[in-house]
């Protein structure tokens, strides 16, 4: 029997030193057992490496930045769908998730499927809402407090012990050791991202990451645990190892069950010396190291595609721990003509 061919659009083709998840997601899709994937790349800039990887990406279209708005993105996706007849779209950037969640039902009525968290799930896991999230779902999170004015900083700092992590509303984090550093970090972040600035308890320990997939009904379809072994100066894993930890796996399943999470995700945990896991961050999409999950037996991109299409998926229940991923970089030779094409027509 020949496998069905699915046309799947994927974003995040920026396989650079701080990589987007697109290329590893595509590798997972290409190795899918249930279907053959025809990949449509969706790119923002002309130099995203994935655009030029023709053995992985059949055709790429540029799409507008999330800041241009949902309506503009929808117009572009309609055009692409007319050309390519998309079955599924897998968005992979934090910044674009909101737009795709908003468009999910309209896309579905055109026959384009997605499998994403709900707007509520997306919102409540935002950095600013983490303390409430922890309370609501009974998950340990570091203590944190939003600060709106520099005048209140000293007062709020009394609730913490140094060092304290000062976090910007959207991005950035800085560890500070005294009031003066905290104030300067506060002013920096407030100027860059606006208020509030978030003060967070500093948890000393080892970082663990989980990638997984929830079916939207509380069931765990996939979950793979990883410890970073080598971290770049941008804080990205350049090497990591699949591990098993009953407690962490239980926590992950608890997260999926309680939130009824739908779609891929990455959870970032810190384990302190008492062995307590603190949930530090929830990324509402597949992480760039997802190919490790594929490599140890849980093809998350494939399962996500099937769930998007409304098919029944048998949950993965095990994987081979002790396997590692080691990232490497690779220089492609690209014809100028190709760069010209994507730059001038927005298609390649």
């Amino acid at each position: 029997m020949t496998k069905q061919i699915l046309t799947i659009a994927v974003t995040g083709l920026n396989a650079i030193d701080s990589p987007g998840p697109g290329v590893p997601v595509i590798r997972g899709l290409k190795e899918a057992k249930a279907f053959n994937a025809r990949i449509i790349g969706l790119s923002y800039e002309s130099l995203e490496p994935g655009i030029y990887m023709h053995e992985l990406v059949d055709k790429t279209y540029q799409i507008p930045y999330p800041s241009s708005g949902v309506e503009v993105l929808f117009e572009r996706l309609k055009y692409i769908h007319n050309q390519e007849k998309l079955d599924v779209i897998i968005p992979n950037f934090d910044a674009e998730m909101f737009s795709f969640i908003k468009l999910a039902s309209e896309l579905k009525s055109m026959g384009v499927h997605t499998f994403l968290p709900t707007a509520e799930q997306f919102e409540e896991r935002q950095k600013m809402n983490l303390p409430d999230f922890g309370k609501k779902y009974d998950i340990t999170v570091p203590a944190s407090e939003a600060v709106f004015t520099a005048g209140k900083l000293a007062e709020v700092l009394k609730e913490f012990e140094f060092p304290v992590v000062v976090k910007g509303k959207f991005y950035d984090a800085k560890i500070v050791y005294n009031y003066e550093q905290a104030l300067s970090a506060f002013n920096d972040m407030a100027a860059k991202w606006g208020v509030p600035v978030i003060l967070q308890e500093f948890v000393r320990g080892t970082e663990f990451d989980v990638t997984g997939l929830g079916d939207g009904k509380g069931n765990t379809v996939a979950a793979v645990l990883m410890r970073k072994q080598y971290i770049t100066d941008k804080g990205k894993a350049w090497g990591g190892i699949a591990i098993t930890d009953e407690k962490l796996l239980k926590l992950t399943k608890h997260f999926i069950k309680e939130t009824k999470w739908g779609g891929g995700f990455e959870l970032e945990f810190m384990k302190d010396k008492e062995g307590e896991f603190y949930l530090m961050e929830i990324n509402p999409r597949i992480p760039a190291w997802v190919y490790l999950a594929v490599g140890v037996g849980q093809n998350i991109p494939e399962a996500l595609t099937l769930l998007a299409l409304g098919e029944k998926v048998k949950p993965y229940t095990s994987y081979e721990s002790g396997k590692m991923f080691i990232r490497y970089s690779w220089d492609m030779i690209v014809e100028l003509k190709e760069f010209e094409m994507i730059s001038t027509t927005g298609e390649l």
Partner: peptide
């Protein structure tokens, strides 16, 4: 200069 208006 190419037909598509690309100058190199």
């Amino acid at each position: 200069i190419s037909d598509s208006g690309f100058v190199f």
